[in-house]
Amino acid sequence: MFGREKEQNILTQRDGAEKVIFGIVFTIISIQILTILIPLGFMLMNTFKGRMEFNVTNLWTPPKNWLFKNWGESFKYLVVGDSKATEVSFIGMVWNSLWQTCVRATILSLTPMLVGYVYARYDFYGKKAVMAVHLFTMTLPLFGSGGAYMKFIHDVGLFDSPLYFILTSWNGRSPSVFIYSAAFTGLSHAYKEAAELDGASRLRIFFSIEARMVAPIFWTFFINNTLGLWNDYLNVLLYQPSFTNLSTGLYLFGSKFEKSGNMHTPIYWCGLIIGSIPPLVLFGFSSDLIFKNMALGGLKG
């Protein structure tokens, strides 16, 4: 087995020519990083400008007076909706983003675990057929069902209903099922058998023992799903117009004022930055977990 130091040496020791190549790549990546960070920094700086000042100065000019109040104003200014009845405030959008993301991320991370578990741990009637259909549908290139899906959502009363987020998230067809399945297959049967001897029910064995042993995988998927769902604007735009989340709301707000040119851009940008803080913080704390645990076809349990 390799020690950590030896591993470090193999991956980091470079000879003369290698050093040059790595130097060039380092420069290329640094330039790319700067093209992301510099505009973001200037975006942040411009949030402190007044409306008129923003319109007459360019992005690179610092504000004359730093208007910190813009950040507080964004909570009042950023409101979407065609009428008072359908209006959603900025706080309302944040709340919608929170509950929609939590509900969907939990279900979307749990469902593949359930399916992966039964594939790995149980020999049941119809197992081969279920698995064959699963594999087949994963690569089946079906297109154009958007119309039929919209019709279905209307027919069953899920259009503009919070139940939509709960009932449509039980998707057990994702490739992550096989990642869970591989993890459960790798677990020792000893705990399960001991629990069976103690008379524990199948459900208890799953939730109290086996699911806990693959918890790192669950959290990796949960964080990944959370990051993706926080920014999801299309689902809300298409199927849940009354439950505007932050991503959809900021898009709607921007496109409403874009044509009229009547927008307080610094305050709008405050909203965009505030909406970016939760995923940034979550990613900052969990990026190591994600990078360590994720690998196609096998996650370290």
Binding site: M43, L227, N231, Y233, L272, G275, S276, L280
Partner: peptide, 9 residues
């Protein structure tokens, strides 16, 4: 960062 914050930004 571009993958984790809203594309709107």
């Amino acid at each position: 960062i571009p993958a984790i914050i809203s594309p709107v930004v």
